[in-house]
């Protein structure tokens, strides 16, 4: 522990010479200018450290409720679009109810396709997170 002497902090204000400091202290910016060589390296190191910290903090998974909601909405949206297209084409072409039936099935398939896509994205994220955690 360093023991400070009385008057150390006031020295500058009263024009008395400050106690000499160790050489490393001057390295930072006492001269008012960036130190000559290693600033770039140190910046890069600090950025890397910050990045590591940030990516470490971000690695919490999505909530179960949110995931379920997303997948349910994906499925229903596909069916809804299929049904709307089917109803519209049926009214237009007078083929009630056959196109509705066909597009309901297609819409359900599209909904499942949506769900599959969303789920595989979650899987990918989970794998990336796992890889990241193992790597560190």
């Amino acid at each position: 522990m360093t023991r400070y002497q009385t008057g150390q902090y006031f020295a500058a204000a009263f024009g008395r010479p400050t106690p000499p400091r160790a050489k490393e202290d001057y390295k930072v910016s006492d001269t008012g200018r960036p130190p000559p060589n290693d600033l770039g390296e140190r910046l890069a190191a600090a950025r890397a450290r910050q990045e590591a910290r940030q990516s470490g903090g971000k690695s919490q998974g999505p909530t179960g409720l949110g995931t379920g909601m997303r997948i349910a909405v994906d499925l229903v949206a596909g069916i809804a679009v299929g049904v709307v297209i089917g109803l519209f084409l049926d009214r237009w072409l007078g083929t009630t109810p056959w196109l509705l039936v066909a597009f309901f099935v297609l819409g359900a398939a599209a909904g499942i396709r949506n769900v599959f896509r969303t789920a595989s994205r979650f899987e990918e994220q989970a794998r990336a997170r796992a890889a990241e955690e193992n790597g560190e």
Binding site: G78, A80, V81, G82, I85, L106, N114
Partner: peptide, 9 residues
């Protein structure tokens, strides 16, 4: 259909 369902979902 999957593409058209995007804005809905």
């Amino acid at each position: 259909i999957s593409y058209l369902s995007r804005p809905i979902s």
